[in-house]
Design a protein around this nucleic acid. Structure first.
Lengths: 369, 369
DNA sequence: CAATCTGACGGAAACGTTTTCCCAAAATTC
DNA sequence: GAATTTTGGGAAAACGTTTCCGTCAGATTG
């Protein structure tokens, strides 16, 4: 028989271990392990006996021990900018659902745009030996990234990241959605379209701004620098940016914002200064957070689907983690964006009353069903 | 010397282990362990040598191994209702900050009010062998709780939980803040005050409603049942509840909501039906989420501080986990609430124009600084 | 029928810690 | 100076898995 190792009825916890299952099923612990992990070489009849024993003694494998010996924790790290920005909880939710469904646990952290906080976060994740990390912050200090990079460690970035074998990138197709938004506004007759960006030190904020510039050029519109405002992706930032615009001799007839929170701030600012939306000025957001459709008026916005983002992130991580994942070599993952027309956009002030409005809008994008 | 155990230069990872430190500091691994864990019996001189070696080889202890042998993972579970409800990210943030500062990691999950999801969540947490769980859901199926309770497992609940030695409860003093809100409204002259509750199967929703009833009775006001609406703690629920109130022969002059999201829904509904807030109707929320102050008008609300809640939760958990924590025996932790007067409350419609407004409000609570 | 191959299973090593037990040396006491 | 206590540190067990390797039975081949 096996050596006189103490049974699991020891002092600390009434934890049932693989040994109890083995004893009950009258097999070795190796066989139990194989059966539980679904390794095909074990005889089906025996496997059934093992599973029965598992059921009977209420065995649940110890994750720590598993991780210790296998070197894989089955935990995915997810780094976001700030959990209190409504976009991110939606992303977290989707990410978690997918990860759990695929047998992974999730470790979440938000940087709050604070490098020292970010560094601590990365250290925490390494210490808990996560299997990979998705950095979905729309911008992160490159320095810190290297900490992760040095180890050969599966990483997923949004928009851009160092070109290295263990790094995968989720390429968001900003152009697609932003072009649709610009064309939608242009089709309505807008010529003076302002853009409120995110903090420009963040890569993704820059990418959105560039997409806007490009789309404007495509429809032959120029953007004076006074119409390019730098915000910070918060409501407060939107309010401040609007104040800057309001100080101009003439308010633009439309404002496109780098994210929905900014747009919501703008909406509030406009309400307080008694400008009607969309009659006096049109507002477009970006992200399509849940809140957007409950704004007054419901916000026209460019949708970047959390589901798409989360699903690509989890897939890309697994591709980097699991030795023979079907998409193991794929480095880039495309994320589409699309315009969702609601009620915060209309003809520019001073133009003829609506008649062809719907038709014009349709040319930009289908209205939300 | 030590047995010819393979050094950490093995095939899998270039992980530096306690053994490398021991070799470098020319001590046993036991001593390294003791030094690293700050056990006082180790000679200061030696400890210094160990720390130097730790620094030099870049040693970071393996959490899995630690957890495996010590039986404690240093992970705190945090269960919330829905991460997409803005109240919870704020709570999560505070909780995480505190936990990390005290050397714990956090595992987060949201139930989405779905029992099967909740069960999975609990299983996940047990499997990862968290050291304790804070259930901050404002209501959870008692059945599921038992799963956790059966094991002797540190638990923290909000408002109410089974009376058991391993369970601690955060008692939110709803009365305090809600009484202030009711008195504030009554002082302004309101007599018809409606209440929109949360889903009544949730304990905390019931507690808030009861506090409202009691406070109304205290100021001699009765509440007809048509003024007690059951909502669901979402914007959509607020909009729906308002529709119910609007269908009445006469709209109440004030509405108190069980949470801020409901109040925000009400605000939106009122805007669409062209009722002015606060001129036509006053609205009061509960929670004081970040968003509340950015509403139009800024929302008067009862504040339940996330910081207080999170701090009490972490403390209570540690009290349950750590054998000789100073507050090991404390079972209940009081959480205060307080009224924050902003601009969504005023005299009832039809009363004299404001003059003593501020004075009246002051009697309710000091205005926000 | 003997020799070889195949494949399922068990024994035991390994993962990186904490912690118990024990021993040697130093400090204290008589 | 001998006997005792105290102290600090090392050896090794234990934690609960996965996985390597060897064994043995049964199947296959010559």
């Amino acid at each position: 028989m096996s050596p006189p190792r103490k049974s699991s009825s020891n002092r600390r916890r009434a934890t049932v271990s693989i040994r109890d299952v083995a004893r009950r099923a009258r097999v070795s612990i190796a066989t139990v392990s194989r059966a539980v992990n679904g390794i095909s070489s074990v005889d089906p009849e025996l496997a059934k006996r093992v599973w029965k024993a598992v059921e009977e003694v209420g065995y649940v494998p110890n994750t720590q021990a598993r991780a210790l010996v296998s070197g894989r924790s089955r935990i995915l790290g997810l780094i976001v900018s700030e959990i209190t920005n409504p976009f991110f909880p939606e992303l977290v939710q989707e990410f978690e659902n997918l990860a759990v469904a695929q047998g992974y646990e999730v470790m979440i952290g938000s940087t709050n745009y604070d490098p020292s906080r970010t560094e601590l976060l990365i250290r925490r994740m390494l210490q808990r030996s996560v299997d990979g990390v998705a950095v979905m912050t729309f911008g992160i200090e490159e320095e810190l990234v290297k900490k992760l990079v040095e180890r050969e460690f599966p990483l997923v970035f949004v928009d851009a990241g160092p070109e290295l074998p263990n790094i995968r990138v989720l390429k968001v197709n900003y152009g697609e959605g932003i072009r649709a938004a610009v064309q939608h506004l242009a089709a309505l007759g807008h010529r003076q379209i302002a853009f409120i960006s995110g903090p420009l030190r963040l890569r993704s904020a820059g990418a959105r701004r560039d997409a806007f510039r490009k789309s404007m050029a495509e429809v032959g519109l120029s953007v004076p620098s006074r119409h390019m405002i730098e915000g910070n992706h918060t409501m407060e930032g939107g309010i401040a940016a609007l104040a800057q615009l309001s100080a101009l001799a003439e308010l633009p007839t439309a404002v496109l914002c780098s994210n929905d929170m900014t747009a919501i701030g703008v909406l509030h600012g406009l309400y307080e200064t008694t400008h009607k939306v969309p009659r006096n000025i049109s507002v477009v957001g970006f992200d399509d957070i849940h809140l957007a459709q409950f704004m007054l008026p419901p916000l026209t916005t460019v949708q970047m689907s959390c589901k798409d983002l989360a699903s690509a992130a989890v897939q890309a991580l697994r591709a980097g983690i699991e030795p023979n994942h079907p998409k193991a070599t794929q480095k880039e993952w495309e994320i589409p964006t699309r315009l969702v027309v609601r009620k915060s956009t209309d003809f520019p002030r001073g133009s003829l009353p609506a008649l062809g409005r719907v038709a014009a809008a349709r040319r930009g994008a289908p209205r939300e069903g």
